[in-house]
């Protein structure tokens, strides 16, 4: 990963609080263009809140966010709408529109932003996005309630990729998947990000995903990002949570698995 890549997301001094409960205090974070940044942290450290803040679903009480150099907070609405086409978001449960088929779900953002596209082209785009997200060819006309958990996530990913975004937010993509499906999803994330040149902001609890996919990892603890770096850099940190996380029994197992079977880096 080139350390001199331009910054895709620049977060400065973000403070989020719900009533008395402070989630983030003066949080800083940079996401570089083209990297896959994993975000980890204990439950309740505000990983999802951070994502919601970046994509504008949650108004922080203080701080600045720039995406591709454009301010997210306090910018003019026109510009923010323009920014919205440049990212895709996959929510934890997929958040598919339950009354639309998978193909129609994928077409929603396309129709919203590019009403001039013809129905044939929309169908063709939906068709190859379905395959690109690793769904079977017959998944297009199915409704979300007919899909398994893993397929819902893939359909959510297909919808997130509908506008060919430069920036992809994934909220716990492998949570609730069996190890085989999770590994397949990791490979998919990595391949797509390399082929499409995506910048990925990936929230996860899954140590295997961190090892297999992420270029860098940001650790959320004590209301801040306490460390950002590759896993080996993080291992050198003496922060107690990081040590407990990566050197706990599960952390050691995951890194042993990676050591014995090195991941192919594109």
């Amino acid at each position: 990963m080139d350390l001199n890549n331009p910054i895709a997301i620049r977060i400065r001094g973000i403070t989020n609080a719900f009533g008395d409960q402070v989630v983030h205090q003066e949080l800083d974070l940079d996401v570089r263009n083209g990297e896959i940044l994993g975000v980890v942290g204990g439950s309740g450290t505000g990983k999802s809140v951070l994502m919601r803040t970046i994509i504008g679903l949650q108004q922080p009480s203080a701080g600045e966010i720039e995406i591709f150099g454009d301010p997210m907070i306090g910018g003019d609405p026109e510009q923010q709408l323009d920014l919205r086409r440049r990212w895709g978001v996959m929510f934890q449960g997929g958040a598919l529109f339950s009354t639309l088929t998978v193909a129609e779900n994928i077409q929603v953002p396309l129709r919203e932003f590019y009403p001039q596209l013809g129905q044939t082209l929309l169908d063709e785009i939906a068709a190859y996005k379905v395959i690109m997200a690793g769904l079977p060819a017959n998944a297009g006309p199915k409704y979300p309630s007919e899909l398994s958990g893993g397929m819902k996530k893939r359909a959510g990913l297909a919808r997130a990729l509908a506008l060919d975004p430069q920036l992809l937010f994934l909220d716990e993509p492998t949570a609730g998947l069996d190890p085989i499906a999770a590994a397949a999803f990791d490979t998919l994330t990595r391949n797509l990000s390399r082929t499409l040149g995506l910048t990925v902001f990936l929230i996860t609890h899954d140590l295997d995903t961190l090892h297999a996919v992420c270029d860098r990892v940001a650790v959320l603890a004590d209301h801040k990002v306490v460390a950002v770096g590759t896993i080996s850099e993080l291992l050198a940190s003496d922060h107690p949570w990081i040590q407990a996380y990566f050197n706990g029994p599960r952390g050691r197992a995951a890194s042993a698995a990676v050591a014995s079977q090195p991941v192919r880096k594109a």
């Binding site: 088929t101 193909a103 129609e104 169908d123 939906a126 068709a127 190859y128 379905v130 395959i131 690109m132 060819a137 017959n138 297009g140 006309p141 082929t195 499409l196 040149g197």
Partner: peptide, 21 residues
């Protein structure tokens, strides 16, 4: 190079995919 890669990506996925019932 990018264009070739993208075209092979969409080409590889080109299969009979049904979009609606």
């Amino acid at each position: 190079e990018d264009a070739v890669r993208l075209m092979s990506l969409v080409h590889a996925t080109e299969r009979d995919v049904r979009v609606r019932p």
